[in-house]
Design a binder for these strands. Structure first.
Lengths: 206, 206
DNA sequence: TGAAATAAATGACCATGGTCATGATTGACT
DNA sequence: AGTCAATCATGACCATGGTCATTTATTTCA
């Protein structure tokens, strides 16, 4: 009883909210779920909900962040011993797979994600972590001699993730069902990003 | 009187709506403008508005699309005779400048843009046009010997615009005031995109 | 322990984006 | 001109996300 009854109660409530929102969003979709419904399911007052999530969208971020976080952790823990391109695709595929499970929800999530005010949630932290993990992969690739050591790893990491995120956005926006792992266009974009477009490079591949 | 009185009336109304929305959004911001206000200012019924713009956000897209369209046209008409990197930055700066004029509005616009259902508006058309114009610049750069002729121009165009759009999104999301033309990070990202990260390339610059 | 002080919960309430049954306009056809 | 079908306009109305004054629970401290 060290943290005080109050803190415990708050934690409990937050968890109930998270669970309720998760269940209802999954069952009825985001738009068709009412904040009052969630509040009722979490057994709290209608106004209380907004003490924990200032916005309905924040609820979604709350949920996804946790889930995607886990998926990404797992993906980084199982990076294959292959070229850097395959490695980042391995990571991105994990995210894609997770989003493909519920495109309608993912759509809202991806739309909101870049715009969540991150004084709450750890979205910024998630992004920073993603970036630094990718940067680590890049550094390793440099050591293997795959990549130019002079390329700044954080910048490349950002470009790669940006390329991925944009494809994700495009797919979800278009409600394409082709949101699949191993997308050819994504691979081509990433390949081009790694490879560059300058004339004077050495042409190593076919 | 060929198009019939009805069509004329509709066009007129649409124009009044556009003007009213533009004025009110500029004066009061997006969130603080009411759809009823716009309807009143355009001298139409409250419900009529939604015959012309299914959503409040659509109004914004309606306006921005036109303006940004003009800005981009102007930018493409004045592309400098310089390396491709400077050329695309010239284009992107035009958009940036336009958005910097009203960041709060631009924020909503950029958030909605990737998700507008494009059976209405010509957003898709705008994007396609942007892509093909960039692709043209790329082809010219190939002819000048700046870029590898084997790089698919549309793919590179998409990557470049994607990189830009993401930076724009990031800036606006963070409410950064540093949304300025000639942004150094954007330049670095685009440079990296053009240059690539492969080890085996020739290092042409310092 | 009791009372003051602080923090959190509540639900009636509000503002507003969007809908829809109803009524007005228009244009084609006779 | 008169009729009719089709299209468009309208504003009362609804659902819902979010607010806030009030009430309730917890902690602090004498």
């Amino acid at each position: 009883m060290q943290p005080g009854r109050r803190e415990r109660s708050k934690l409990e409530k937050l968890e109930r909210i998270r669970a309720a929102a998760h269940r209802l969003f999954a069952r009825q979709g985001f738009e068709h779920t009412t904040t009052k419904q969630i509040a009722a399911a979490a057994d709290i007052g209608a106004g209380t909900l907004f003490l924990y999530a200032p916005t309905k969208e924040d609820l979604l971020v709350l949920i996804f962040q946790e889930e995607v976080g886990r998926a990404v952790d797992a993906a980084f823990a199982s990076v294959p011993a292959r070229p850097i391109l395959d490695q980042v695709i391995h990571i991105f595929d994990a995210i894609t797979a997770h989003h493909a499970a519920d495109p309608a929800l993912a759509r809202v999530f991806v739309k909101e994600l870049p715009f969540v005010d991150d004084s709450r949630h750890g979205v910024a932290h998630f992004m920073i972590q993603m970036n630094s993990r990718l940067a680590t992969l890049i550094e390793r690739a440099k050591e293997r001699g795959e990549l130019d050591p002079e390329v700044p790893a954080p910048l490349l990491a950002q470009n790669l993730f940006g390329t991925f995120f944009q494809r994700l956005q495009t797919y979800l926006a278009a409600r394409m069902s082709e949101l699949e792992c191993g997308d050819a266009r994504l691979r081509a974009s990433l390949e081009l990003q790694l490879h560059g477009a300058r004339k004077s490079r050495m042409r190593a591949r076919a």
